[in-house]
Amino acid sequence: MTPPPPRHRNFAPLIVAAVLLALTAWSALALEIRPGRLGGIGNLFQILGEAIPPDTTLVGVAVEAIVETLQIAFLGTAMGTVLALPLGLLGARNIFGRGVTVPARVVLAGIRTLPALLWAVLFVVAVGLGPLAGVLAAGVYTVGYLGKLQYESIEGMDPAAIHAVGSAGASRVQLIRYVVLPESANHILSQILFMFEHNVRASSIFGFVGAGGIGFYIANYLTVFRYQSVLTLLLAVFVTILVIDYLSVLVRDRFLVPSRSSAARPRRRRPAS
């Protein structure tokens, strides 16, 4: 009888855990984060107590501000999507060579270097106070982020279809039209919805730097300690995010889920009368 093969102990998980623990301790010590300093968190509850009940007289203002925020997010997402799609395609290594993908990726990474709020500051300086700066900030940030998501999902596609249709003599443009876009359309739709949600949240604070939206009102009411008004505005943001989340689920169910499962799950038919 042959002896069982020797067992090799795998220490990798232990080493990774030790490194993560060491990094946590090092960061906490360097930033002087100690339990004793967390006592101030109680103030948060005091502020919350002062904010209840929310100021209902501000509902009209909140609705108006949230509509402006949604408009900023929508325009920013639309502008960003139009620019991100070609850049995302140019960044996909299974479609283009390094001479094209590297510059495209450098542009996208450069855009992502600045957070959305900083882009808002820059555009306020460039085009002045108001929603236009917010739209441009949301749009530019969308280009960087959505472009990256897109080239990653395109590269994650099953290469067989690209090989097979490319082998049939299709040009690169035809490959994009007939294989890449149809096969990644569901992912792209999902990513656009994700970016819209993200831009609604980001646009909510653009007002802090004068780039329009509900953040402008939140910042002003915070400055004068009107927490009840602030709570009204925050609730408006919260409800909006919930509604968008629900709508996203509906859209995903409509366009993403059935396309994968309809083969296995027959559609419900109306009984014959």
């Binding site: 067989a160 097979a164 249709v165 049939a168 003599g169 007939y178 149809p182 569901n186």
Partner: peptide
Amino acid sequence: LRARIGYIPQNLGLVSSATVLQNALMGCLH
């Protein structure tokens, strides 16, 4: 040259979100 050599890979390489006719038409793109 690619157009002169047909290739059916092991996992077929069909575009799953396209119709049967569209998939067949992909053979004539060249």
